[in-house]
Design a binder for these strands. Structure first.
Lengths: 268, 268
DNA sequence: TATTTTGTGATTAACTGAGTGAAATAGATA
DNA sequence: TATCTATTTCACTCAGTTAATCACAAAATA
């Protein structure tokens, strides 16, 4: 990867973290310079010289650069670890404020707990992972999990699985041997198995650009299925809650199709 | 505090975290609703109904809401702890990418280590605190610290101070007795003292809207002085590095003015 | 003093997001 | 089935923000 690419990436990420383009470019420029003037900065970035001053001023206000008020002014980026620490502090403070505010905001409605058969969807690997872990932690009887991609076996997931009480049945499948082996090592309490997910592929039918991500069944009353768009790595999930016996149909079907290993069915 | 206020604050913080106004309002609205439709949402927020759809779609893509694709569509906010966890994951991933990219980006200049007498400035309590802690950790001989505000005595600062080797002289002053007592308890190795900062106030002279924040001297070669604008709580610091003997002048002056307690001066 | 460099401010252009209404779609009602 | 209503999508305007350029003042250098 060329320097230009990494610079470009750094600028992009900084913008995602809330900086303006000029600010991001100046910060990256200064990170490559031990110390620099507005002129030098404008030469190695494509920020017009006359705008460097404003950008740096804003960066200084955010605690990301230091300024030497001489003539010409000298600028210097705060060391990377200090910068990330500062950004982290800022972030933590915000999430904190958010949590406090949302907790205080009154519920506007008592919520009608109809909880009939519902299917919800959500996106984003992080969010789906968090939800999966939550569902697993809430399990009281049985967890059935199939992973379609190595990257989904995170430390948090392993923790959630290992923290389950030993009375809870734990069945974990994988798409290939190496992943199955890793799961077997990481989660000793689990019964692991190998499952080609051909059935799901066929079921999905038309669209070949979809890879199965995870499949999760908790206590026979909740199901989560996610797919991954291979090109973008974007993960999307559908999530069923509040099932009473509708899910049974699905899980039976899975069993019938040989996706899950045969075992004694629980009585309803 | 009224519900409206907390809602407003939540919306504001969410925007700082990168959401658009409509997205922020919809998320807060959904957090107050167990579940809701576009219509309900538009009623309790001031997002036009026709734009709720876009906003929710974007929120779904960020993993912050779930969607039930029925008619009418039902929306539901992800639980608060899951949401903050997801936001945190996002943030960590970004900082990670940033660090990797910046480390790879080539240095453009060898850096001329002239290190003459230089005075730099920086802003923001977080950034200044991080820098102070860093400077303290780097000390090899002596740390002199004066705190002008209770809020500056953070856990991180205490850690930095206590992690110093015992051979390093550690002198800490405070503006009032209660703060001095707290420091004395928190940092047993330190010699604490009380110092009215009248000298500095007088020196600052004209501007009465400035409160002294901290004053830090490390190894007689580095100095950091910060002030706090009482109205905005904004902290600004000037920071001198690379002093050889210029600093001696300053520290002598401080000693002469009685700011610091008298003690045996080190030989140069 | 003349000339270049440095810094500030004003101005314009491009873009993004908020706000509004029309059109298409789906559901319900007669 | 036809009609009407509610839901959803789409296209557009307006305003505020940010990027980009220019003109000019101040400072440093020769």
């Amino acid at each position: 990867m060329s320097t230009d690419d990494t610079v470009e990436e750094a600028v992009e990420v900084l913008q995602q973290l809330g900086l303006k383009e000029y600010e991001a470019q100046c910060f990256v420029g200064l990170s490559r310079l031990s110390t620099g003037t507005a002129k030098q900065l404008s030469e190695i970035t494509d920020v017009p010289r006359t705008r460097v001053y404003d950008a740096v001023r804003l960066l200084e206000a955010q605690g990301l650069v230091e300024v030497q008020h001489s003539s010409p002014q000298q600028y210097r980026a705060v060391p990377l670890d200090e910068a990330t620490e500062t950004l982290r502090d800022q972030y933590e403070a915000r999430v904190d404020r958010l949590a406090k505010a949302l907790e205080q905001a009154d519920q506007v409605e008592p919520a009608d707990e109809d909880s009939v058969q519902e299917v919800w969807s959500m996106s984003g690997t992080d969010a789906i992972a968090n939800r999966s872990n939550q569902l697993i932690s809430d399990a009281t009887e049985e967890v059935v999990l199939v992973l379609g991609d190595e990257s989904l076996l995170t430390a948090e997931l392993i923790d959630s699985l290992n923290e389950l009480e030993s009375g809870i049945e734990l069945l974990i499948g994988a798409v290939d041997e190496s992943l199955e082996a890793r799961i077997h090592d990481a989660v000793p309490n689990a019964t692991t198995f190998l499952s080609g997910l051909d059935w799901l592929r066929n079921e999905a039918g038309t669209d070949e650009n979809l890879a199965i991500g995870r499949l999760l069944l908790v206590d026979r009353s909740t199901i989560l299925v996610s797919t991954i768009v291979p090109t973008t790595r974007e993960e999307q999930a559908i999530f069923g809650g509040g099932f009473r016996n509708g899910l049974i149909v699905i899980s039976r079907r899975l069993l019938a199709q040989g996706l899950l290993p045969q075992r004694d069915p629980h009585p309803e």
